[in-house]
Simulated scan of single mutants.
Amino acid sequence: MTTTHYAQAFTKDQCVVGLRVAVNILEKWQASSEQACRILRISRSTYTRAKQRDAEWSVGLDSDQMQRISFVLNIHAALRLVFDNPENVYGFPAMANNNDFFNGRTPLEIMSQGDMISLYETFRRIDVLRGSQW
């Protein structure tokens, strides 16, 4: 017996919308373009196109890239639940953190290492801050 795994297919429109939202959040978090590209695993040209709000374009992203976008959106949602003020919602990812996991580094530094484990572990540490508010 064989098991066939089907990857979730996303439309190019869904990819564009998700990518633009994630890029917008990363910019508000003060991520450099290099950090954003590593976090989302996209090219510099795709990042530049995603920032051009009025440009008509389409992009296909794989499930890894869409999962990275999901982590960015979920981290943002957790920060919005934890903090009442925009300065902390958008500033926290760029702040040095002395938690054992971060060890004086910023969440952006950890996430921009580019591997999925660093992104997931950053999400997990931030998600814990919200407690059981979901």
Rank of each mutant, 00 (worst) to 15 (best):
T2A: 11
T2I: 09
T3G: 10
T3W: 13
T4I: 15
T4N: 14
A7S: 15
A7Y: 14
A7R: 15
A7L: 14
A9F: 10
T11D: 14
T11H: 14
Q14F: 04
C15P: 04
V16G: 09
G18T: 07
L19W: 05
V21G: 01
A22E: 07
N24L: 06
I25M: 06
L26H: 07
L26T: 06
E27A: 09
E27Y: 07
E27H: 10
W29T: 04
W29C: 02
Q30S: 09
S32I: 04
A36R: 03
A36E: 07
R38T: 05
L40W: 04
R41L: 00
R41S: 07
I42N: 05
R44Y: 05
R44I: 01
S45P: 01
S45Y: 09
Y47L: 08
T48K: 14
K51Q: 13
K51E: 00
R53F: 00
A55K: 15
S58V: 04
S58I: 01
S58E: 14
V59E: 08
G60H: 06
G60F: 00
G60M: 03
D62C: 06
S63G: 04
S63K: 12
S63V: 11
Q65A: 06
Q65M: 02
R68Q: 01
I69N: 03
S70Y: 12
S70A: 13
V72P: 04
N74W: 01
N74C: 02
I75T: 11
I75G: 02
H76W: 10
A77P: 02
A77E: 14
A78G: 03
A78V: 03
R80L: 00
R80Y: 00
L81D: 15
V82I: 09
V82R: 15
V82S: 03
F83L: 06
N88I: 01
V89R: 11
V89C: 05
V89Y: 04
Y90P: 02
G91N: 10
F92K: 12
F92G: 02
F92W: 15
P93Q: 11
A94F: 02
A96V: 11
A96P: 09
A96K: 15
N97E: 10
N97D: 12
F101L: 06
N103L: 07
T106H: 05
P107V: 08
P107M: 08
L108D: 09
I110T: 10
I110R: 07
M111L: 12
S112V: 03
Q113W: 07
G114S: 09
G114R: 07
D115H: 15
M116L: 15
M116H: 09
M116N: 13
S118W: 06
S118I: 03
S118E: 11
L119Y: 04
L119K: 06
Y120P: 01
E121M: 11
T122F: 01
F123R: 05
R125H: 14
V128T: 11
